[in-house]
Every structure is written in structure tokens, then in C-alpha cells.
């Protein structure tokens, strides 16, 4: 399944379509796109914005919201991170069991320190991740994330990095359970994280 997942852009779109359709067709207990059966989240090996090595196994027992973006992104990334921060706040005491991990798609401009400052603007518990171009490419490949760096004529920005904007929800056992498309509501994020924090009955 994972090989299938990593075979490129069309596969990603197909995967998205299947995940979203499955969520709707089965009236699943998650509101976002679901993965049934759940499959193990590929491990990633990166450098965390708190100075440690970043491995997803570090967060077993928590729900991980895994997204990709960059600090110079003005619209989609801040909207996503703001909504995740709102969701974490709305979860109340359970918020401590939601860990947001945000992997840069722009290592040239985003170092660990910059990621940390950027993410702290949303929620100081959010962890950023960067690494060598090879490490980051491997992480993107494992999660079907596509990027394209483009110079934009007429913009004061040096370049932009177009990128996949969905966010994975990984449960406390390390399984990919849901895919949040951009624009999902804060209430739906809260609902799905709560569902994943319940004792696992059917996975």
C-alpha cells in the first residue's frame, strides 16, 4: 500500500479521492477522509524545531496532525495552523494529546529557529521539522506530498513553493487514520481528534 502511495502525483489524487469517498460512503465516525483499514504511518527522520531529532514514534499515545508548508506562505499555511491551534484550544484538557508536526517544504529559508518562532505565533507546542533536502524529499515521498518551487514575475517575493495542503491525522498507535483537506472546519478537526483519542474499538 505504501509503495502505491508513493508512486507520484496521480496516485496522491486517487488516494485523496478514495479517502474522501470512503468517509462519505460509509458514514464513518470521522468527518474527514478516512483510511480503512488504517495503515502504519511511515516513520520520518528529521530535525525538530525544539533541537531534538524528530521521529513520529516520539509521539505514540498522542494524535499527531502532520502537515507540510513553509514560513513565507501567507495564506494556506497560516490558515491551516490557526485552525489546528483553535482545535487544540477547543479540545480543552485533551488538547495536550494533540501534537501538531509541521514539515517545511522550503529548507533554504526555514531553519529550525525560524520554524520555531513562526509556529509559536500559533501555538508554542507545535513542532516544526526540517532536514537535508534528501531527508525532506523522503518524508514528502512517504506521505505523497508534492511541491513545486516557482519564481513569480511581478512579485517582491523571491520564490514561492506550491505544495500539497492536506494534513494527516495519525492515531496514538502510529496509524494513519484521516486526511484533513484544506478548509475543513475547526469543529470537524475537534470531532475527529476526539474520536481518535477514544479507546480504539475497531482498528
Amino acid at each position: 500500500m505504501l509503495e502505491w502511495l508513493t508512486r507520484g502525483r496521480t496516485r496522491v489524487c486517487t488516494l485523496l479521492a478514495i479517502a474522501l469517498a470512503a468517509g462519505v460512503a460509509t458514514g464513518a465516525d470521522l468527518r474527514s477522509g478516512t483510511f480503512k483499514p488504517a495503515r502504519a504511518a511511515p516513520e520520518i527522520s528529521l530535525r525538530a524545531s525544539d533541537g531534538n531529532d524528530l521521529k513520529l514514534t516520539r509521539y505514540r499515545g498522542k494524535v499527531v496532525a502532520l502537515g507540510f508548508g513553509y514560513t513565507s506562505c501567507p495564506d494556506v499555511c497560516p490558515s491551516t495552523l490557526f485552525d489546528l491551534a483553535q482545535a487544540r484550544a477547543k479540545l480543552g484538557a485533551a488538547g495536550k494529546d494533540l501534537q501538531v508536526v509541521y514539515v517545511t517544504v522550503d529548507p533554504e529559508r526555514d531553519n529550525a529557529q525560524r520554524l520555531k518562532a513562526y509556529l509559536a505565533g500559533f501555538d508554542p507546542t507545535f513542532i516544526g521539522a526540517t532536514g537535508t533536502p534528501e531527508q525532506l524529499a523522503a518524508a514528502r515521498k512517504a506521505y505523497g506530498i508534492v511541491i513545486s518551487r516557482e519564481n513569480v514575475p511581478g512579485s517582491a517575493s523571491a520564490y514561492w513553493v506550491h505544495h500539497s495542503s492536506f494534513v494527516y491525522l495519525i492515531d496514538g498507535a502510529g496509524n494513519i487514520r484521516a486526511l484533513l483537506p484544506f478548509g475543513v472546519t475547526v469543529d470537524d478537526i475537534v470531532h475527529d481528534v476526539k474520536a481518535l483519542l477514544e479507546p480504539c474499538t475497531q482498528c
Binding site: T71, E108, Q113, R114, A117, A120, S157
Partner: peptide, 20 residues
Amino acid sequence: ARRAVMLKGSEATAGTGNGA
């Protein structure tokens, strides 16, 4: 406007951050 923080330290190469 969306909340945003100025990013310092690497602004010479990466800018001070953007907003919307």
C-alpha cells in the same frame, strides 16, 4: 488580518515573514 510574527535572525536571506 491573520495574526503573524516577525521572523528575526534570518531576515537577510529569508525575509521577516509574511501576512494576509
